[in-house]
């Protein structure tokens, strides 16, 4: 198990050698992820671990993939999607053009869920879904739209619980244990690398979703990310956070109106 001092050394080295800044990450979670990798790859010596990260780009890539959390689901928290479907999308639908940003999109399950709802509301053709992540590997998966077939049962249940009325299986083709989504659904998706720690705003959006991403940040970095979203959100645009995330602790709080009881805020100022 690595200790606190070693974790700080690692954070410094990663920044110095690779330019990734994990300094604002929640230590409890980061330490656990690094420990997990350290044990998984059977290191017994911290200096060897450090040297490998420093000198082997492939291993550094593996580290980024392993320490970032990429657990996601289609229609995770169906009630949240229900509110999107019944309250938010109808408002967005009145616009000539809908721009959505999925910040920290991981393998894309949320992006495909959104595309399905937009399609069912007949507005997918005038929407653009920007999806970004820090991890290039998950973006490749997201672009392909290929997910384990065994997950589809759960996703189908989530979809129905979120108010979906169609036969969910029409959205994918099954092949050798894999479900391929895509076709029309992915036509309006743009995937790109983006680091919430160091990159800036790149467009103006009507809806930004960043769910269960900022839980890995400390409060200062959360505030930075929230300011970035604020800069990227059109007036009267919506910000969606994870079910246990909040704007309550942020300076920005007074400029947003929460759409209760769900984790959606409307920018009012």
């Amino acid at each position: 198990m690595i200790d606190d001092r070693e974790l700080e050394i690692l954070i410094n080295e990663i920044f110095e050698y690779h330019g990734f800044d994990f300094g604002g990450y929640s230590r409890a979670s980061l330490k656990r992820r690094v420990d997990r990798l350290y044990n998984l790859d059977r290191f017994t010596n911290f200096s060897q671990f450090l040297m490998k990260i420093r000198e082997q780009p492939d291993y550094f890539k593996r580290m980024i993939e392993e320490i970032t959390v990429n657990v996601t689901e289609m229609f995770r928290d169906p009630q949240f999607y229900k509110v999107l479907r019944t309250e938010i999308i109808p408002v967005l639908a009145t616009k000539p053009f809908i721009r959505i940003w999925h910040a920290g999109c991981s393998t894309g399950e949320e992006v495909y869920s959104m595309a399905i709802m937009l399609k069912e509301a007949n507005v997918l053709h005038k929407s653009l879904l920007y999806a970004t992540d820090i991890n290039p590997l998950v973006l490749d998966t997201a672009k392909e739209g290929v997910f384990p077939l065994r997950m589809m049962q759960q996703y189908s249940e989530n979809y129905i619980a979120s108010g979906g009325k169609e036969d969910f299986s029409k959205y994918y083709t099954a092949n050798y244990g894999l479900a391929k989504l895509g076709g029309e659904l992915s036509e309006k998706m743009v995937y790109s690398l983006h680091n919430l720690v160091s990159d800036g705003s790149f467009n103006e959006f009507d809806l930004i979703l960043c769910r269960n991403v900022m839980i890995y940040f400390d409060k200062d970095l959360q505030e930075r990310a929230l300011n970035l979203f604020d800069d990227s959100l059109a007036k009267l645009g919506y910000l969606a956070l994870g079910t246990k995330e909040t704007l309550k602790f942020s300076q920005l709080k007074s400029r947003y109106q929460q759409i209760n009881p769900n984790k959606l805020w409307k920018k009012i100022k």
């Binding site: 409890a28 839980i215 409060k219």
Partner: peptide, 21 residues
């Protein structure tokens, strides 16, 4: 601890949540 999250402890007495495996 909320359901569907791991609950972690920070050094500054705050609680962090984690959706990992």
């Amino acid at each position: 601890a909320p359901s569907d999250y791991h609950l972690l402890f920070e050094k500054n007495s705050t609680l962090s949540l984690d959706t990992s495996e």
